[in-house]
Design a protein around this nucleic acid. Structure first.
Lengths: 248, 248
DNA sequence: CTTCTTGCGTGCGCTAGCGCACAGAGACGG
DNA sequence: CCGTCTCTGTGCGCTAGCGCACGCAAGAAG
């Protein structure tokens, strides 16, 4: 990040009415999110909501025995902390930084008040929440029916969509935690992809060489979630943004 | 159903302010939900929202190859059709009746207008939606990490909580569809439970004999979802309902 | 340049769950 | 009472993924 991040780089913030943006701007706090930082733990009352700029945050469920599984992933298309306006104030999951970067944050209470004052803003947030819901549902299905190979492809694509460039900084161990599988399983799957010339990696750095191939090898889950997310967030009838094709 | 169902048997309808109840009552339509009825298909625009009384409805994702997986389950604690007020108007899943019974339904537009007029009502619906979110997340985790035996226990408990009595009408084949596993897998798991004296079944009728044991044999997922659902929906500070222990 | 740490590769035995095939047994209509 | 359909039980070979153990090599630290 050589240039200063601005709030409008987060799609949700950018989509707010100008008037609301003005009022929120002064309260937004730019926060660096280093890899592995925990934004909140399972059951924590949410003090802030976070709007990622170039960071990626995973919602992770950690079981009693320590095993984990990623529930959903959030980049600059969304926000962390939907429980603030959904009313629960907490969720039984952990929010952890999966790719370092920056985010703007806002006090939960302030955000909640603002959301409740502006129905347009509320409805935007609710559409985002529905996109999140879709992602969770699809994760459930994917966990049930698809191979590690397919899931790795899906996961790489989800991350890629939320990054600029085609390189991820991410060890296989961490990917395994996210997918809820063995590290060796990821090694094997990644090895296959490398042999096929789809990716190239070494010691925590993954280059995606052939995104197209990746999409072919992925299960349907990626496309379903992407399509639905685009429908919910980026198709705004009779506005200039209409038809914007992708997450980023 | 020898007695006439009344709207207040649905927890969400019962929790609405008296004034709103009055206005909705005349528009509520009592509908019988036979086993297997599809309330909506993946991608359908939602014409109605449904409030189950004694029926159970599953949200099911059906993949391209026909395989399926249950995303969440809804009984008289909730409603079918959250996409109406979340703004998406549709979801990529099927709503199918898993246990026959009755539900009240309401035109989606009417419900939406009502929700948008009453913030108290909206907030109740959002809390329910968060409970749904939790259930989906937990389903994802459960699909990843737990055995068919454990998942069957969880599934039986979820159904039991939404029924009166301790008998389910449900073939192993259908349970397998819900869990997204083989029918034989369910046969085996159910056989174990029967040997342990936890359940008793024959040709689509399952009697639960020892609910306690069922909870012990289930994975943590059931308890997590139940606790969170109770927290979100039934704990209303400084009101008579406070401390109500269970879903039903 | 050495040493240590971190990330990746690999092999091996094991189990859960799959796909398939078929058999028996309750329910039910004629 | 008989044929038919639906539901459940069982057996068998197969594979994906697990747990474990160990080796190796690229960077970082000294």
């Amino acid at each position: 990040m050589s240039v200063m991040p601005i709030p409008q780089q987060n799609h949700l913030l950018a989509a707010l009415p100008a008037e609301v943006q003005q009022r929120l701007l002064v309260n937004l706090e730019l926060i660096p999110l280093p890899l592995g930082m925990v934004l909140y733990e399972s059951g924590d009352a949410l003090r802030h909501v976070y709007f990622p700029i170039d960071a990626i945050v995973s919602l992770l469920y950690v079981m009693e025995n320590g095993a984990s599984a990623e529930i959903s992933v959030v980049g600059n298309e969304g926000l962390i902390g939907v429980a603030v306006f959904m009313g629960g104030e907490s969720t039984p999951s952990r929010a952890i930084v999966q790719s370092a970067g920056y985010a703007f944050r806002l006090l939960g209470k302030q955000f909640k008040d603002e959301v409740n004052r502006h129905s347009e803003m509320l409805h935007l947030m609710l559409r985002y929440t529905q996109a999140l819901l879709t992602q969770m549902a699809q994760t459930a299905v994917c966990n049930r029916h698809h191979s590690i190979d397919q899931q790795l492809c899906r996961w790489l694509l989800l991350s890629l969509d939320r990054l600029s460039g085609n390189q991820l900084v991410m060890t296989q161990e961490l990917i395994a935690n996210m997918l809820g599988v063995r590290r060796e399983g990821v090694t094997e799957a990644a090895g296959k992809l490398q042999k096929l010339g789809v990716i190239e990696y070494s010691r925590g750095h993954i280059h995606v060489l052939d995104r197209c191939k990746l999409e072919q090898l992925s299960c349907e889950c990626y496309a379903v979630v992407k399509k639905e997310t685009d429908r919910l967030l980026f198709y705004v009838p009779a506005e200039p943004r209409q038809g914007q094709p992708a997450l980023r």
